Amino acid sequence: MNKYLEINDLGLRDYKEIWDYQENLFQKILQIKSKNSKENLQYETPNFFLFVEHPHVYTLGKSGHVENLLISEKKLAEINASFYKINRGGDITYHGPGQIVGYPILDLENFFTDIHKYMRLLEEMIILTLAEYGLKAERSKGETGVWLDVGTPFARKICAMGVRASRWVTMHGFALNVNTDLGYFDHMIPCGIRGKAVTSLNVELGKTKISLAEVKVRLLKHFLMLFEAEIKEKTEA
């Protein structure tokens, strides 16, 4: 089993461009698995972890309802945002500058074969990271993602999640609001859940800006611990 991760921080990149990039990595792993199965081979499958920020974009999962996007195509253009129907689970979400988006593209057969456990560990990574900033983050029963003040009238979501998996290979992932412009969430019903607020790390800490680089280091530290994984060192060409 290969528990090494290839880490790639892509910076601010177009959503469709990175969706295509994810698909290429996803299919690469599936092709190796298919070849191993057909020819009784044992080639290792790689694992990837992508960090990225996206320009303003709304994405709708397979089980989502387009009515949860509350604005027209004209208004989308006015606020410089795009919209895509995509192949992950979940409903509608928003990505934008100041938000850390993480795409683990893993062969779970290198770790464990349990999608429920995978999702809970992603949530735990966020919970542990936010604890380092003094925040008590939690899961909300029946609602994937990470929340603050669960069970109170002030419940608010700080991290959304949605994944796709095939033959234990994953893609898509999580979106953690760090310095996010929360006004963009007003144009949708986040994850299709009415009456729940959205927040970000800088708002919770009362700061103008939080270091994205620092948050990424902490996220990756907890991911490696929870998945018992290691970073694959890049070799010089």
Rank of each mutant, 00 (worst) to 15 (best):
G206K: 00
G145E: 04
D91R: 12
W168Y: 14
G134D: 08
A160L: 08
P190G: 06
L148W: 03
K136T: 14
E132C: 12
S63I: 09
K221N: 03
L76S: 00
L201R: 14
T59V: 09
D9M: 06
G11D: 10
I189A: 05
Q42W: 06
R156K: 15
V169E: 04
G96A: 07
D181T: 02
T152K: 05
H172L: 10
V215W: 10
G192M: 06
N110Q: 10
L76R: 00
L226R: 00
M125V: 15
R120D: 08
S82V: 08
G102P: 15
T235N: 13
P153Q: 02
Y43E: 15
H187I: 02
L108F: 09
M188P: 03
E6D: 14
R156A: 07
V163I: 15
V150Q: 11
G151K: 03
G183F: 00
L69G: 07
G90C: 12
Q42K: 11
D181I: 06
A229I: 00
S200V: 06
E6A: 14
S72R: 09
A237F: 07
L25I: 09
E124W: 01
N40A: 11
M188W: 00
R139G: 05
F185C: 04
T129Y: 08
C159E: 04
D14I: 09
F185N: 06
L108W: 05
N36T: 08
I189L: 04
F154D: 14
M188I: 13
E138G: 00
M225L: 12
Q22E: 10
K16A: 09
S200I: 00
W168D: 08
L76H: 01
K117V: 07
G61T: 04
A131W: 08
E6S: 15
P46V: 04
K232P: 09
I29D: 11
T152R: 01
L10W: 02
I7L: 10
G134N: 10
N87I: 07
M119S: 10
F174N: 06
I29Q: 03
G173Y: 04
F51A: 06
I7P: 07
I231G: 03
L70P: 01
E214G: 07
G192E: 02
K232L: 13
K75W: 07
S166R: 15
E53Y: 00
R167A: 11
A155R: 14
V178H: 05
A229S: 13
T208E: 14
L128A: 05
I92H: 04
D20S: 11
M188H: 01
G89R: 09
E230G: 05
I18G: 04
K209F: 13
A77W: 12
G61Y: 03
I126V: 15
F227S: 00
E39I: 08
Y84V: 01
M119W: 08
E143H: 06
D91Y: 01
P97I: 10
G195S: 12
L122E: 13
M225K: 15
F111W: 05
T199P: 08
L41T: 07
T144V: 14
E6R: 11
E124P: 02
L108G: 07
K35M: 08
V163H: 08
W147A: 02
K234E: 14
P97F: 02
V198S: 03
P153N: 04
